[in-house]
């Protein structure tokens, strides 16, 4: 239950940064925090009490005492894709800074016309 609370508060804090902050880098940081919260939520849904990790490393482990492996395999790739998405977003931020010499989204909007 604590894990759900942590994951939901991470998602809400990240969304707050995306909605309110005016600095482009802060917005990207907020997106990264939302990403982390979603990953934690997925893993927490797949958890089973008193179970082991889904690896049959010894004969005594049985399939009915293991956590759900499907969310883990989804999150595994989602973390790597998240890094690539963050890198592309930061590349765009660097390009915008080159052009406008500012990171404030309001000023960038004024310079548009």
């Amino acid at each position: 239950m604590l894990y759900y609370i942590g994951a939901i508060s991470l998602i809400l804090i990240g969304l707050y940064a995306v909605l309110v902050k005016k600095n482009l880098l802060k917005i990207v940081i907020g997106l990264a925090i939302v990403d982390s919260g979603l990953n934690l939520l997925f893993i927490a849904i797949g958890y089973v009490k008193n179970a082991t990790a889904p690896i049959f490393s010894s004969e005594s482990l049985t399939a009915d005492k293991m956590v759900d492996p499907v969310p883990q395999s989804l999150v595994l790739t989602a973390i790597v894709i998240g890094l690539a998405v963050t890198a592309v977003a930061l590349g765009l931020v660097i390009r915008l800074y080159d052009h406008h010499k500012t990171l404030d989204i309001n000023k960038i909007r004024q310079l548009k016309w």
Binding site: M1, Y3, Y4, A44, G46, Y47, V48, K49, P54, A63, D64, M66, D68, P69, V70
Partner: peptide, 14 residues
């Protein structure tokens, strides 16, 4: 939280 669910994961594990 923490309950066993009967899904596609069961088939994979077995």
């Amino acid at each position: 939280f923490g309950e066993k669910r009967e899904g596609v994961g069961k088939h994979y594990l077995e």
